[in-house]
Design a protein around this nucleic acid. Sequence first.
DNA 1: GCGGTGTTTTAGCCTGGGCTAAATTACGGA
DNA 2: TCCGTAATTTAGCCCAGGCTAAAACACCGC
Lengths: 221, 221
Amino acid sequence: MPNHTAAVQDYLKTMQLLEWDRGAPVATQELAERLGVSPASATNMLKRLASLGLLDHEPYRGATLTPAGRKVALEVIRHHRLLETYLAEALGVPWDRVHDEAEVLEHVLSEDLEDRIAALLGEPEADPHGHPIPSKDGRLPRLSARRLWDLAEGEVVSVQRVSDHEAAALRFLASAGIKPGAMVAIVGRGPLAGPLFVRVEDVPDEVHALSKDLAEAVWVA
Amino acid sequence: MPNHTAAVQDYLKTMQLLEWDRGAPVATQELAERLGVSPASATNMLKRLASLGLLDHEPYRGATLTPAGRKVALEVIRHHRLLETYLAEALGVPWDRVHDEAEVLEHVLSEDLEDRIAALLGEPEADPHGHPIPSKDGRLPRLSARRLWDLAEGEVVSVQRVSDHEAAALRFLASAGIKPGAMVAIVGRGPLAGPLFVRVEDVPDEVHALSKDLAEAVWVA
DNA sequence: GCGGTGTTTTAGCCTGGGCTAAATTACGGA
DNA sequence: TCCGTAATTTAGCCCAGGCTAAAACACCGC
């Protein structure tokens, strides 16, 4: 049952992340894009994973994780987020670099090391970007469903989490003080997909303009 | 130049270890055995590595690392031994298990993490089994060439290092107190390949009988 | 110098996981 | 209802790295 290759783990993990933010079923192209792989390769793997009972693949209409597949995905995500937290806390790896390191380590972390790391960190419930860490039995806290981008002018909210697969974006957000726990106020927005203007409470004299991409990568409570 | 696969790294690392304790050139079979791979597979890989300039392969007579190959091998060995040390010190992983964990982590340790770990440990010169850790520029301390097995009755020596790829052996040695730094006296030996009888200084009232295999896995200064 | 034995290499095959190019299907608009 | 476009799948290919069975070689003893 275990013993999945790194590629299999990556596909399942990405399936779960996409189901969370685009909803199921997941389109082949979306998946391929996220994984940096051609759509044909993704189809190929989807067929393999379906035949292993890890997901259901309705040809031409997308795929959905089965409970077995979701279990594997959550284990990988747990590894990833524990590692991010550990690297930041224990080794001082900066915010914008923990993701890439964790990306490779997640596939080789043994059960024993996982437990040691989790214990050492005090069984943390969120990684440095605010993403919840699944528990060993695969449960995880309810997530807020609002993006910073979707707020109206005048709202004041607390940052819950920020997307982590764009190091450059993370660096900018960090420099602006936009990180989990920070309070942010919407002070205005440009036309259509124009920038969103926000003020961070700790630095009240600066206003930051966020592109749509950036404002969609920040989730609030 | 970098970007070698895990398999390539394993072959080069094993080549270096064999050159150290059997001498060069390394026989195909020896290599295959250590890697748990068929001799045909080893030949195959030797040809690839030779064509990459990482080793010289004299068909039917064995292989020898080139400077380029040795460089890679030493980097992998540095990763391995740093990781063993880190796992033992920072995460409390027991002596007999650090090797297997390091075996997979060594291939995915980034330069940045390597540096952080080394700094955190104070640039250690030996891993928990007493094996020297190559420096970043690939130099490493002179090794003693005497095995416990080769000593005469009556000699008293200090343990320098113990071989680490047999968890069961490590557990026994640990329980007997035979670890780097310990002083050991040879109190007698059985006939031929019969057992070697030793006393550990810290525990003067116990005499341990070591098989040839075991006594060859312990190196002394 | 001639075999026999054990080691090494060759030949041919397999799996995982990529790729491109071509065929297929879904679906929105006229 | 039909058609064009975009998404998806199929077909066929490649590379890394394993394997087994068969051939080639080295070397030792006679």
